[in-house]
């Protein structure tokens, strides 16, 4: 339990720095999933700087908490977060998606410390996380498993196989955080294959359900505490987020799923993300 979590103001500063570095990285690489990364940045910051019991000096410690980024296309912001948390050298971020770099467009656990399982194809993270949480139960260990999915990703049927199993196994050491930014690659989720009523679906599948503002650190931590205190069943945290959050012209714009900014757009975005003294 994190009794002394950093202040929301402190975390907001980290999140701004991560967003800015992520923007730089995508601009330099000429590739990435900016919109998808900006929507889950605050969730990653809350996890890595206020929740997960992980140690960059011992990234494979057997009783570490597990975190699975199921939306593997947000690898860029994961790398920036891992660099900020000390798992990789920040200088290495300049190699993102360059030939021979270990910072692939989707994370590779064999290459990048802190990555637990390889993701990229959608609907893979939750089943693997169910296995992790089941392993902790079988071993009688108290570490927890956290998995972050997108919302469009929930159209993959494998998630619902895993959802049933997690509830059946009573995995109260498992928490799913859904980055509910309402957009997928091509259009709004609601216009593609609607998930609504999303909360009811998870309740019906036997999960404890809690909704929160995915850009409000206090709300995020309150949700994490709900997950920690729930007994006998897994918790699903629906984090209401905005695709492209943090830059005015990318917010809620489906085009920014994986668009790379022009020089002009980059300059404007960077100005908006300029660090505010905390």
């Amino acid at each position: 339990m994190n009794s002394s979590r950093p202040s929301a103001q402190h975390l907001a500063g980290i999140a701004r720095r991560i967003r800015r570095r992520d923007l730089d990285m995508i601009y330099e690489a000429g590739a990435g999933h900016l919109g998808s990364e900006l929507s889950c940045t605050d969730l990653l910051v809350a996890l890595y700087f206020g929740e997960l019991q992980v140690d960059p000096d011992e990234p494979s410690a057997p009783t570490r908490d597990r975190f699975v980024l199921s939306k593997g296309h947000a690898a860029g912001v994961l790398y920036v977060t891992l660099a900020e948390a000390g798992f990789i050298d920040p200088a290495e971020l300049a190699t993102f998606m360059q030939p021979g770099s270990r910072l692939n467009g989707h994370p590779d656990r064999k290459l990048v410390p802190g990555v637990e399982t390889n993701t990229g194809p959608l609907g893979h993270g939750l089943p693997v996380a169910v296995g992790m949480a089941k392993a902790a139960k079988l071993r009688g260990e108290s570490w927890r498993t956290w998995v972050l999915t997108g919302d469009g990703e929930l159209q993959e049927g494998s998630n619902w196989e895993a959802a049933m199993a997690a509830a059946h196994f009573g995995l109260d050491n498992l928490a799913l955080v859904i980055d509910h930014n309402r957009f997928q690659q091509g259009a709004a989720v609601a216009d593609t294959n609607d998930l609504a009523p999303l909360a009811d679906k998870w309740r019906a599948f036997g999960w404890h359900l809690h909704e929160l503002d995915g850009h409000d650190f206090d709300a995020i931590f309150a949700g994490f505490d709900v997950a920690r205190s729930t007994r006998g069943r897994p918790t699903c945290l629906i984090a209401h987020t905005n695709k492209g959050e943090g830059i005015s012209f990318t917010r809620d714009r489906v085009a920014w799923h994986h668009r790379v900014p022009t020089a002009e757009e980059y300059a404007q975005a960077r100005a908006e993300l300029t660090e505010v003294p905390s």
């Binding site: 057997p62 597990r66 637990e116 399982t117 609907g123 893979h124 939750l126 089943p127 693997v128 996380a129 169910v130 296995g131 992790m132 949480a133 089941k134 392993a135 902790a136 079988l138 071993r139 498993t145 049927g157 494998s158 196989e161 895993a162 049933m164 199993a165 059946h168």
Partner: peptide, 27 residues
């Protein structure tokens, strides 16, 4: 307790296997 039956769900079956291995078990 060491027989993990996920039901008729093969994608989850293999994903759960990978997760169990990550958690230090030999599935």
């Amino acid at each position: 307790e060491r027989l993990v039956n996920v039901g008729i769900a093969e994608q989850n079956l293999v994903g759960v296997g990978a997760g169990l291995a990550n958690g230090g078990l030999l599935p």
